[in-house]
Amino acid sequence: MPHPQGGPPAHPVPAADTEAAPGAVRRTASGAAGPPAGAGLRPPARPVLRAAAALAAALLALSLLSLLTGSNTIPMSRSWDFLTGDPSARADAHVRLAVMDVRLPRTLAGILVGAALGAAGCLLQAVTRNPLAETGLLGVNSGAALGVVVGLTYFGTDSAYGILLWALAGGVLASGVVLLLAASGRAAASPLRLVLAGSALGATFHGMTSYVLLGTQSTFDDYRYWTIGSLANVETSTALALAPLVVAGLAIAFGAVRPLSALALGDDAARALGHHPARIRLVVAVAVTLLAGAAVAMAGPIAFLGLLAPYAARVVTGPRMAPQLLLSALVAADVMIAADILARIVIRPWETPVSVLLALVGGPLLIWIARSRGMLSLGAPGARS
């Protein structure tokens, strides 16, 4: 009831009630229940920008540290002199070899492999709505392994570049077969069909790989070196040759951000918004094939990175797909470079395979995520936080 003098209402609402908690039901002037407070509001962009800037700065610092650090006896100060143009360091062939021919290519490869695996894992978790999805889900890893074994055994491949090409071809072939199996018949390629097809093909390729390896000891020795996952023998030409594949995969991924956001609401909601779920999954599968195929070809199978990076990104971004994809790539690139640096120094003068370090860290982290209720809620792709 209004005040007789036209002043404030007779029963003013307490100030504490005017700012309802997010998710609380609001009442309209007529008393009807309105939408929850904060509904439809996006999380502020500043935390995402700060996180992206911090991760990018960390990547630059780690890359510089990667150029300065090695498993040999060259001191960091000598490597720094080479990078800053000191004439005596520039004239030292040993320092030049270590920095330009060993550390620079593996640093470039680490950035590419990390960004590719992080983005691929984020895409797979979103398109399958499966928080445990990673790059092996479409059979890329098992296809790449079979390709390497076939090249070594039946075609006499004996160069690192040849192994790279066979790994890439095997990964692309496996992903293509998974898509054909998932979309066979009249039904579209649903997340469940993609997962089942990828698991079945991965098991089949793994059996074929084991069968070939059991009969050829020389192939097993070469394959064992590739499958441990390492950046030790990557050359600059190899990294530059596969960089366009990673860039193309990332471009396709960011182009599919809006359809993926719609797909997170469900297939029916995506169709109502004018998108085609089957077409979205096909585009995402192409992007994942390019990203994961290039990463596996360069470094071999790397576990856990594509699984864990999206979790870390969702802590900051929530369900928003574009920043989630960006931060997943940056987080994975940072972790990959840091793990590669540690791989050179933990048992110096020898090296530890980078995949071993990632597995040692990734296993306990995955157990922690499985036991953490808060992290599981963040882990559901498309879930509103």
Rank of each mutant, 00 (worst) to 15 (best):
341 I>M: 08
374 G>F: 09
83 L>K: 03
13 V>R: 11
163 I>E: 12
140 V>E: 08
3 H>C: 15
24 A>V: 10
46 R>E: 14
14 P>C: 09
348 R>K: 14
337 I>G: 00
283 V>T: 11
330 L>A: 14
74 I>E: 00
269 A>P: 02
243 A>W: 07
366 L>A: 07
274 G>P: 06
159 S>Y: 03
152 L>S: 00
248 A>M: 06
341 I>C: 00
98 A>K: 00
254 F>G: 00
241 A>G: 11
360 L>F: 14
169 A>I: 13
73 T>M: 04
312 A>W: 06
343 A>E: 05
93 A>W: 00
380 A>H: 09
77 S>P: 00
253 A>I: 05
318 G>Y: 12
279 R>I: 07
298 M>H: 02
275 H>W: 15
246 V>S: 05
369 I>S: 04
298 M>G: 04
280 I>G: 02
91 A>K: 05
307 L>F: 05
242 L>T: 11
98 A>P: 00
246 V>E: 01
17 D>V: 11
169 A>M: 14
338 A>M: 12
166 W>F: 15
34 G>H: 04
271 R>G: 08
144 A>L: 13
101 D>M: 11
49 L>C: 11
60 L>W: 09
8 P>R: 12
189 A>T: 03
13 V>L: 14
306 G>N: 02
6 G>D: 14
118 G>Q: 04
368 W>D: 03
250 L>E: 05
266 G>M: 10
78 R>V: 09
325 L>W: 05
276 H>Q: 11
311 Y>M: 08
212 V>M: 05
368 W>P: 04
208 M>V: 12
261 S>I: 08
354 V>S: 07
98 A>I: 14
54 A>W: 05
375 M>F: 10
30 S>T: 15
168 L>Y: 07
208 M>G: 15
87 P>I: 02
159 S>R: 08
309 A>C: 06
317 T>L: 10
215 G>P: 08
348 R>I: 05
170 G>Q: 02
36 P>V: 09
208 M>Y: 11
82 F>L: 06
48 V>T: 08
354 V>M: 13
88 S>F: 04
376 L>C: 10
299 A>V: 05
240 L>N: 07
296 V>E: 03
375 M>P: 03
143 G>D: 04
141 N>I: 05
259 P>S: 10
198 G>H: 06
219 T>C: 11
329 A>H: 06
370 A>S: 13
380 A>R: 11
365 L>I: 09
31 G>R: 12
224 R>K: 13
373 R>T: 13
115 A>Y: 09
218 S>R: 13
94 H>K: 07
38 G>S: 10
109 A>N: 01
65 L>K: 08
197 A>D: 09
297 A>S: 14
14 P>R: 13
379 G>I: 00
288 V>A: 10
228 I>R: 10
38 G>V: 09
338 A>P: 11
22 P>Q: 12
104 L>P: 03
93 A>S: 13
77 S>F: 03
379 G>M: 01
210 S>M: 13
242 L>C: 11
142 S>L: 02
187 A>W: 10
54 A>I: 08
368 W>G: 12
375 M>K: 11
28 T>A: 15
66 S>G: 15
331 V>E: 06
251 A>D: 08
109 A>W: 03
49 L>Q: 13
353 P>E: 01
146 L>K: 03
105 P>K: 03
79 S>R: 15
309 A>K: 01
349 P>D: 06
257 V>K: 08
310 P>M: 01
55 L>K: 01
69 T>K: 11
71 S>T: 00
28 T>R: 14
334 D>K: 10
296 V>C: 04
